[in-house]
């Protein structure tokens, strides 16, 4: 990888790190509030997969926060530099579209993982967590962040205005992440909604991620991994095609 790529990645990380109070701190606080409210209300009544509800909820909150922030990172960085025009600074140098893609996606992954670690660090004290298979934990948060970072790139490239981006976020990303088993096991859903959930790739990210903690899940982690990898490849290919064509970046 060229120095240009390394610098672009560094710049993308520095961009959110300089305002980490908002980009990492705020989502951690939000997740903590979710946990306190939901687990307080439901703790005594509910167990999922034999796991107390509070413990079940934590991995869901961790990866949901990670996914939403990975998306936010690449999409907001791109739209901001497009709107202000400073995107020329990354279009003028000898950086290939593949390097461009990787820099934004890896930065989004890192932001997602930092938020995830932050959420885990503040929530893990509230419920008995286990870490049965940490390799799955890492794998799913990384791939999930990659997918969301890539979707964020597509949204950031496509949107001309901030409200278009907000639309993408509110009508696609939020429903996908919320309706994916963060707050429940899909086995507790009616038949029809179980079926719908199985078409949501975010469901597999969360299910596989949770497997890493408890060793139990709605579907086998290998299946989740396959779906998540295939989704990552699909959205990456689409984004690379966009970038190569210069869509909205090089007129």
């Amino acid at each position: 990888m060229s120095r240009g790529f390394v610098t672009l990645l560094y710049k993308e990380v520095l961009r959110f790190w300089k305002v980490s109070f908002q980009t990492v701190g705020a989502p951690v606080l939000t997740a903590l509030l979710y946990l306190m409210i939901f687990s307080h209300v439901l703790e005594s009544h509910v167990q999922v997969h034999g796991v107390p509800y509070g413990a079940f909820l934590i991995p869901g909150l961790v990866i949901m926060s990670a996914l939403q922030n990975a998306f936010a990172n690449s999409s907001s960085s791109l739209i901001q530099s497009k709107v202000t025009g400073s995107v020329v600074f990354v279009l003028l140098p000898p950086i290939s579209y593949v390097e461009f893609f990787l820099a934004y996606v890896v930065a989004a992954m890192l932001r997602g993982m930092m938020v995830g670690v932050g959420v885990l660090a503040v929530t893990m004290w509230f419920a008995p967590l286990t870490f049965v298979a940490p390799q799955w934990i890492l794998l799913f948060i990384a791939l999930g962040g990659g997918i969301m970072g890539t979707l964020g790139m597509i949204a950031g490239i496509w949107a001309d205005k901030f409200d278009q981006l907000a639309g993408f976020q509110n009508f696609l990303i939020m429903p996908l992440t919320m309706l994916s088993g963060v707050f429940y096991s899909i086995h507790s859903l009616p038949e029809f909604w179980q079926l719908v959930s199985r078409f949501n790739p975010v469901f597999y990210m969360i299910d596989g991620f949770r497997f890493g903690f408890f060793g139990v899940s709605d579907v086998a982690p290998e299946i989740s991994l396959t779906v998540v990898m295939a989704s990552f490849l699909a959205v990456s290919a689409a984004t690379l095609v966009l970038l190569r064509s210069g869509y909205k970046l090089r007129s």
């Binding site: 120095r3 390394v6 305002v19």
Partner: peptide, 16 residues
């Protein structure tokens, strides 16, 4: 997001 020097260092890095 950046200071003048940071801007110029980053731009240098883009060019390797």
């Amino acid at each position: 997001f950046f200071s003048v020097r940071e801007t110029l260092r980053i731009q240098s890095g883009y060019f390797g």
